[in-house]
Amino acid sequence: MKQRLITGIIAGAVFLGLCFMGGLWYHFLVLAMSLIGYYEFVKMIKIAPFGGIAAIGYLGVLMFVFPWNLTGLTFPFSWEHGIWLVMLLFLFVTVFSKNKVGIEKVSLLFIASVYIGIGFMYIAESRNTPDGNGLFWTFLLLASIWASDAGAYFVGRKLGRTKLWPAISPNKTIEGAVGGVIIAVITAMIFALLSDGLLPLANALLIGGASAVIGQLGDLVQSAYKRVYGIKDSGNLLPGHGGILDRCDSWIVVFPFVHILSLLPY
């Protein structure tokens, strides 16, 4: 418990400190997190994490998360073209390897590059929104996700009776999930009330609800694939907390979801 607390304080201070600073330092931190997350996924599915086939996925993640705008560079493709090209490279591997690397492996690696790459891309880009309020939007989403996690945990421990999805995550309860949604919505509403009109209450309601529901589903997604591969944590980078994907499983689905549905009013 002591180790978990110390790790949480140090990692949280570094992340939030660089997030507050913004700019290239924060973006490169998120980029590093994304590449470590991809490494954890590749290692989990028992593929050589620094082999030739994995390199395509690292390239895809780097392409998605790299701070193009902040460095004055232009992304050479549209995002959908970039996704297609990464997929094509993975498919070529099956041909050139004469099916020694099968479609199942390249499919998993491709999914991971999109899932992790685009997830972290939106985490980084949320700090650099065109309206100049990226710090507010980032803290809003992080606070809503953390409030959902805390609400689900404490309400679940106190009132939890009905299992939510025991085959995937035996400790989660429906009561805890509902508690997480309520606490997340309240948190987002507080941000709205303190925003001086920047965040309408209607958007806060949607953002709080989405952060909780989609965030909890993101957590279940990772629980599901870890159960398939018989592991408890995706990595051991953060003692007492697991790996990057263990800590960011909700983030990498909530941030894209909120942006794609244009729930942030900027």
Rank of each mutant, 00 (worst) to 15 (best):
T138R: 00
F139E: 00
I168A: 15
A167I: 09
A204E: 01
L220E: 05
L164W: 03
F136M: 01
W165G: 00
F139C: 02
I174F: 01
V228Q: 08
L141T: 09
A212D: 15
A212C: 12
G230P: 09
Y153N: 15
A210I: 13
A167L: 15
V185M: 11
S169T: 10
Y153W: 14
Y115R: 01
R161T: 09
I174C: 00
G197E: 07
L198Y: 14
V228N: 13
S126K: 11
T129A: 05
R227S: 13
G218P: 10
A212V: 05
P200W: 01
P170K: 06
S234W: 03
D149C: 06
G197M: 08
F120T: 12
A188V: 11
D149Q: 11
I182Y: 10
I186H: 12
N236I: 15
K232I: 03
A202Q: 06
G176A: 08
E175D: 03
A150Y: 07
W137F: 01
A202G: 10
V221G: 14
I214H: 03
G215S: 12
W146S: 13
D219V: 11
F139Q: 00
T162I: 14
N203G: 05
F120D: 05
T187R: 05
P130G: 04
F136P: 00
L141W: 06
Y225L: 10
P170Q: 15
Y122D: 03
V213E: 09
L142I: 05
V181H: 04
A124L: 07
L220D: 08
G215Y: 02
E175A: 09
T138L: 05
Y153E: 11
A212K: 07
V178G: 00
K163M: 15
N236R: 12
W146I: 07
I116K: 08
G179F: 07
I145C: 04
K163G: 08
P200M: 07
S169M: 12
W165K: 03
R157I: 11
A188C: 03
S234C: 10
S223F: 14
K158S: 15
I186T: 14
V178P: 02
L193Y: 06
A143N: 12
S169D: 07
F191A: 05
G176F: 04
T138V: 12
K172C: 10
F120G: 14
P130S: 04
Y229A: 01
G156F: 13
G117V: 14
N236M: 04
T162C: 12
D149P: 07
D196Q: 15
F136K: 08
I183G: 09
A143I: 14
I207P: 00
I190P: 03
A204R: 01
Q216G: 13
I123M: 08
A188E: 03
I207A: 01
G215R: 10
A177Y: 00
F136A: 03
G117Y: 13
V221R: 14
A150V: 08
L193K: 08
